[in-house]
Amino acid sequence: MDMDFGKFLKSPEYDIKIITYRDIFHAEALESDRFGEEYKKLSAAISMSKTDMQKMGIKSGDRVKISNNFASIVVQTNESKRDEPGGLAFMVNSPWSNSLVSGETRGKGIPEFKNIDAKISLSKEEITTLDKLMKAFIKNPI
């Protein structure tokens, strides 16, 4: 497929609520190599219902930018195999999803890991690497 850059420049933003979850294949990848390709592939991904994706003009395999006040990351979109309610997007719990979580806990000690508000739009940038994620928050990783 040819890249249509004009389309990306104008790509609209949509509000989404991200629910994080755990996945056994992801857990397996973490145990064997948390810096490996498989772990990155399964972490840097977001899934949504077919209807939501059509509404936003996003197709399975498209790269999208997910951003909020805390971070801006690029991940790959997958169409959910399930019949999901509208307005929700799903990400496996990982450093990628955690980068979008507020550090504020209203003095309770428990961040909102599973309930993240963000904006989504098509992107032509590369998928965010673990290295880049760390550098975004840590000025001089030793």
């Binding site: 805390f70 450093p95 955690n98 980068s99 979580v101 550090g103 928050f137």
Partner: peptide, 9 residues
């Protein structure tokens, strides 16, 4: 890996 990004600094 498991804490929110903003507290990592």
């Amino acid at each position: 890996s498991s804490l929110p990004g903003p507290v990592l600094s």
